[in-house]
């Protein structure tokens, strides 16, 4: 018997609906007069790979936080695979920036990657062998299979990024929101992450990648780009 974290039953994706549909979204942080996002409209088809481009403070992370249910919308609608927010916890994964994790917590790499399986386990159920196998497979894709027992506090910046991406893969979501996955990483990590992103795209999953750097080689990697400036969509 499973006790899901969500009060609603997890909904299966509507095959006819876009992966993400946003209309007239306004969102902001408590105590701030000006909204961090103002009038964003988007329709992202299933399987698309888009760059979300903007400078620091443009609203990229805020948009991801709204889509993943961390920040409530003040106005407008957000639908994921045809369902309202909160009905598709398993299908959406948000890769936060590394600074948002407490890397000093006493936990091994494998344990952290396994948290990507929690959404399927719910309350009172511990990860099973099947979950460990999925976590280990995700780690292998990122080239960190040998780090399973290493404490997360002893990882380099590039390794931390790969661990977070491995957790996102372990969740096996259909919509991935990746916040600056290539920011401040070494060349080896960059190559590995780029290869994994290609694999995600080839698997038919929908990917939104927040980046402040979008030119030359970057443009060929995505199907298109959405531009944000000061919380407003400019293209």
């Amino acid at each position: 018997m499973k006790f899901s974290y969500c009060r609603h039953r997890h909904s299966s994706p509507d095959p006819k609906a876009p992966a993400l549909e946003i209309k007239g979204l306004i969102a902001g942080y408590p105590g701030e007069d000006r909204p961090a996002l103002n009038g964003v409209n988007l329709s992202v088809p299933v399987g698309a790979s888009l760059a979300l481009v903007g400078a620091n403070g443009a609203g990229k992370s805020t948009l991801f936080k709204v889509i993943s249910g961390l920040l409530p919308a003040q106005a407008g609608t957000v639908r994921i695979f045809g369902h309202h927010l909160g009905a598709c916890h398993q299908q959406v994964v948000y890769l936060p920036q590394r600074s948002e994790i407490d890397w000093h917590f006493p936990m091994s790499v494998l344990e952290l990657v396994l948290t990507g399986r929690y959404v399927y386990l719910g309350w009172f159920t511990r990860p099973q062998k099947k979950d460990s196998d999925i976590a280990l497979e995700s780690m292998a894709q990122l080239g960190i299979a040998d780090l399973g027992l290493k404490q997360i506090g002893k990882l380099s910046g590039g390794q931390q990024q790969r661990v977070l991406i491995a957790r996102a893969l372990a969740q096996n979501a259909d919509l991935l929101l990746l916040d600056e996955p290539l920011n401040a990483v070494d060349a080896r990590t960059r190559d590995t992450v780029e290869r994994v992103l290609e694999g995600i795209k080839a698997a038919g999953k929908t990917v939104l990648v927040a980046t402040h750097h979008y030119c030359g080689q970057e443009e060929g990697r995505y199907d298109g780009a959405i531009y944000l400036k000061d919380g407003e969509q400019i293209k």
Partner: peptide, 19 residues
Amino acid sequence: KELKLLCIDPDYAKAIGIP
């Protein structure tokens, strides 16, 4: 396991529906 996740990454915990 939920308390561990609350300590290390509360945003992720919230995103997967943990109250």
